[in-house]
C-alpha cells in the first residue's frame, strides 16, 4: 500500500470538510438538507475566477506565481471577492426563496424540494454563463516535494491543509466561545425559545449563511486549484458533503471536518485497494453505515 494515499486523502478531505461545515450548519439551524450547497462551491470557484480575471486585467503582475506556490497574489485577493459574492448569492437566495418558505411555515420536505430545484437552476446558469468546458486558476505546474515516509505534496496542497486547519479552529472557537455561537446553538435547539430569550433569530440565520457560503467558496477554490473548475464540480461533491456532515454529527463543526477527512482518506485508500471506479461508492457506503449504526454521528447530540 502506498502511503501517498494519506496525503491525497487529507487534501480532498479538507475540501469536503470545509464544504460540509456549511451544510451541517444550515441543517441544524435552518432545519433542512440544503441540496444547493454543492452548487455554492461551484459558484464560489467561478466567482473567484471571474474576480481574478478582472484583477488580472487591472494589474497583470497579480497573476505571476509567488514562489513556491502555483498562483500569485491575485488569487487570495480574488478569493476574498469570491467569498463576498458567494455570501451575497446565498443571502439573496434566502431572501427570495428559503426565507419566504420559512415565513409561511412550510414543511421541511417542501424546503428540501425547493433547494433541489434551486440547485438545478444554479448549475444550469453556470453552464450557460461559463460553458461546460473546464477552467483553471493557473496553468503553472508544480513539483510535489517529498515529505518523507514515501509521501509527497505540492506547496499548494500543504497551504490548503494549513488554511483548512486554521479556519476550522477559528469557527470552532466562534461557535463554542462567542455570544454569536451561543445564539446559533440556541436557535438550533429551539428557534421560538431563542426569540423569547431575546435572540434575533433572523440575524442568526444570516450569520449561518455567511459562514456556510464563505467556507463553500473557499472549498470550491481549493477543489478548483487541485483539479479543475467545472459547473458540476459542486454537485459531484454533494454526496461526500452530506456523508461527512452526517458522519460528524449534524451541527458539529469539528465533526464535519473530521467526517470530511475520514471520507477523503477512505476514498483515497479505496482507489488504491479496489480501484478508482469505487471512489464514488465510498461516501454512499459510509452514509448508509452511519445512518444504520450511529445516526447521531460522531459528535452529534441525540434529541434531549
Amino acid at each position: 500500500m502506498n502511503p501517498q494515499a494519506i496525503i491525497d486523502g487529507l487534501i480532498s478531505g479538507s475540501t469536503i470538510g470545509l464544504g460540509a461545515i456549511g451544510l451541517t450548519l444550515t441543517y441544524s439551524i435552518l432545519r433542512f438538507a440544503n441540496f444547493t450547497h454543492g452548487d455554492f462551491l461551484a459558484w464560489g470557484a467561478y466567482l473567484t475566477l471571474t474576480v481574478a480575471g478582472v484583477l488580472g486585467g487591472l494589474a497583470a503582475g497579480l497573476g505571476a506565481p509567488v514562489y513556491p506556490f502555483s498562483f500569485g497574489w491575485g488569487l487570495p485577493l480574488a478569493m476574498f471577492g469570491g467569498v463576498v459574492l458567494t455570501v451575497a448569492l446565498t443571502l439573496g437566495l434566502d431572501r427570495i426563496l428559503f426565507g419566504r418558505l420559512r415565513a409561511r411555515g412550510a414543511d421541511a420536505i417542501i424546503v428540501v424540494m425547493a433547494s433541489f430545484g434551486a440547485s438545478m437552476a444554479l448549475r444550469s446558469l453556470l453552464e450557460f454563463i461559463f460553458t461546460a468546458k473546464p477552467a483553471y486558476f493557473t496553468k503553472a505546474l508544480q513539483i510535489a516535494k517529498p515529505l518523507g515516509l514515501g509521501m509527497r505534496a505540492t506547496p499548494d496542497q500543504l497551504l490548503m491543509i494549513g488554511l483548512t486547519a486554521l479556519l476550522v479552529l477559528a469557527l470552532h472557537l466562534l461557535v463554542t466561545r462567542s455570544a454569536t455561537g451561543r445564539a446559533m446553538r440556541a436557535v438550533s435547539e429551539n428557534p421560538g425559545l431563542a426569540g423569547v430569550y431575546g435572540v434575533d433569530v433572523d440575524k442568526v440565520i444570516r450569520v449561518t449563511w455567511i459562514i456556510g457560503a464563505s467556507m463553500a467558496c473557499i472549498a470550491g477554490v481549493m477543489a478548483g486549484l487541485l483539479v479543475q473548475i467545472r459547473p458540476y464540480m459542486g454537485f459531484d461533491l454533494l454526496l461526500p458533503l452530506f456523508s461527512a456532515a452526517i458522519l460528524g454529527g449534524i451541527g458539529s463543526i469539528p465533526g464535519a471536518m473530521l467526517g470530511g477527512l475520514i471520507i477523503g482518506l477512505a476514498e483515497a485508500f479505496a482507489v488504491q485497494i479496489v480501484g478508482a471506479e469505487w471512489r464514488a461508492a465510498i461516501s454512499f457506503i459510509i452514509l448508509v453505515l452511519v445512518l444504520m449504526l450511529r445516526p447521531q454521528g460522531l459528535f452529534g447530540q441525540r434529541e434531549a
Binding site: 455570544a179 451561543r182 445564539a183 446553538r185 440556541a186 430569550y197 431575546g198
Partner: peptide
C-alpha cells in the same frame, strides 16, 4: 436550552 450549560442559558439572556 438543554444542550447549553446553566451559565450559557443566562448569558444568552
Amino acid at each position: 436550552f438543554t444542550r447549553l450549560s446553566i451559565t450559557e442559558n443566562l448569558q444568552i439572556a
